[in-house]
Each structure stands twice: as C-alpha cells, then as structure tokens.
C-alpha cells in the first residue's frame, strides 16, 4: 500500500534520512519506533510531501508520491496527523474538522457522515464543537487532530506521536482509538515514543536510528529483544 525505497532527505548539510526502505501493507498497523531526532517525523514529512526527498521513491499503491504537492497527496488518500497537532487554534472544533474534509468539499453529505463517525468515536468533541480548538485540553486537541485527519478519508493514515505529552489515561484512550480506526479498515503508520503501548496494538514494527531503519519485526519479537527493551521501554 505504502512503500518507501531508499528515501533520502537532507536539511542543508544534515542528512535526516539515509536510504530508508520500508513498507506498510493494506490494512496493517505498523509502528515506527525511534528516539527524538531519529528521523520519524522527517520520514512522515517526506511521505506527506512537506519535505522534498533528495533521492529515493515513495509510492502509494502504484502511484509515485515524491515530487507531488501536499494537497495532491491528501487527495490521493494519504493523510498525515502531525506531531504537535498543528490545529487552527482560533477556529471552532467543528470548523477544524470540516477543514479536514477540504479536499472533499464537493461532497458535503459524505463529510457529514464521517463527522458523525468522528463524534461517535470522540463524544467530547460533539459537546465542544463550538469552542475554539485552542481552548481545549491537550488530549481533546489530539482527538481533534485525529478527527481532522479522518475527515480527509485516508486510505493510509500517518500518526506522528499522538500520545506525546498526554496523561496516561488519555494515552490509553487515544491508542484505543488508533486501533479502532485500523480495525475499521484504514492502514496506519504510527510513530510513538511510548513503545510498549504501541507495540501492543501493532501488527509489525520498524526501529529507526540516525535516519536509518535498523530493525524490523513483529511486535512480540521486538518486545522480547534486549536492546529494544533497554532503549525504548526502559525495563
């Protein structure tokens, strides 16, 4: 479904990604583990077209994404829910969500149906739909961010650190939502620092270090790996 081959990205003289090759199959929930600055966000930004690759290719189905504009990539069915949420703080929750459906603006009926599903998944958002997104708590803002991404009708959803800075109970809720989204048929690539919780819901995982994929495997194998436990789980 999503396939990166030798993806290389530079920030000036700094190489953020060097030859990343990875893939996510249709219907999978894949976790990308890595420390701060390992290249998770750079990979996501490259996939969604916000950073231009220096070399390599990124394909969605049999469609090349490298070189396409972010707006076209969203329309192709790949939506990126970014680290730090990047909401529109001065707009209502409802408007944030509706802008998530911007590329489907010619189909308002379809978007209304998805909005209803988002409200079912996160009932608190229905209650707060007329408040400014900036006035919500961190967990609620994360729900808006995930909801906004779903409004784009993703075939593949990239979620970058959705649990960052949230209270443990909220982390659980957010990751449960991610699992439910995947089970409903959306392919998910999830970047998480919270390795243990992420591996619990994943089908497969990659480990990225210094812009390179250093390990790939099924979650149980990674959970059992001594180095992974030391580096990412702390036990």
């Amino acid at each position: 479904m999503l396939r990166c081959e030798g993806a290389t990205l530079d920030y000036g003289s700094y190489r953020a990604l060097s030859g990343v090759t990875m893939h996510v199959d249709k219907g999978e929930l894949v976790v990308m583990l890595g420390a701060n600055g390992a290249g998770k966000s750079s990979l996501f930004l490259a996939i969604s077209g916000l950073r231009k690759l220096k070399a390599g290719s990124i394909r969605l189905g049999d469609h090349e994404l490298a070189g396409r504009k972010p707006s076209q990539i969203v329309a192709d069915g790949l939506v990126h829910c970014p680290e730090g949420r990047k909401l529109f703080p001065g707009m209502s929750v409802h408007k944030n969500l509706m802008l998530g459906a911007y590329v489907h603006r010619r189909d308002p009926e379809g978007s209304k149906a998805i909005l209803e599903r988002v409200f079912e998944m996160f009932p608190i958002l229905r209650e707060k739909q007329h408040q400014n997104a900036g006035s919500l708590s961190g967990g609620q803002q994360q729900m808006v961010a995930i909801g906004r991404a779903l409004m784009g009708r993703p075939k593949v959803l990239l979620l970058d650190e959705p649990s960052l800075g949230l209270a443990p109970l909220v982390v659980k809720q957010v990751l449960a939502a991610v699992k439910a989204i995947n089970e409903a048929g959306t392919t998910v690539l999830l970047a998480e620092q919270n390795a243990y919780a992420a591996l619990k819901i994943a089908h497969r995982a990659y480990v990225i270090e210094n812009g390179r994929i250093v390990m790939e495997g099924d979650p149980d194998a990674l959970l059992g790996d001594e180095r992974i436990r030391k580096a990412y789980i702390g036990a």
Binding site: L50, S71, H80, P82, R85, K86, M91, Y102, V103
Partner: peptide
C-alpha cells in the same frame, strides 16, 4: 466561505493547512 476559511487556516497554522490539503 470555505475559501475564506482556507486563508484563515493558512494564517493560523501553515503546516496544518497544507496537511489537510489546502494549497
């Protein structure tokens, strides 16, 4: 208007606006 909202969205968060497909 939706077009107006895209301007406000771009002003409030440029990266967020690009990620929802606003050009």
């Amino acid at each position: 208007t939706t077009t107006g909202a895209t301007i406000v969205a771009m002003a409030q968060n440029r990266e967020g606006a690009s990620l929802v497909g606003i050009d």
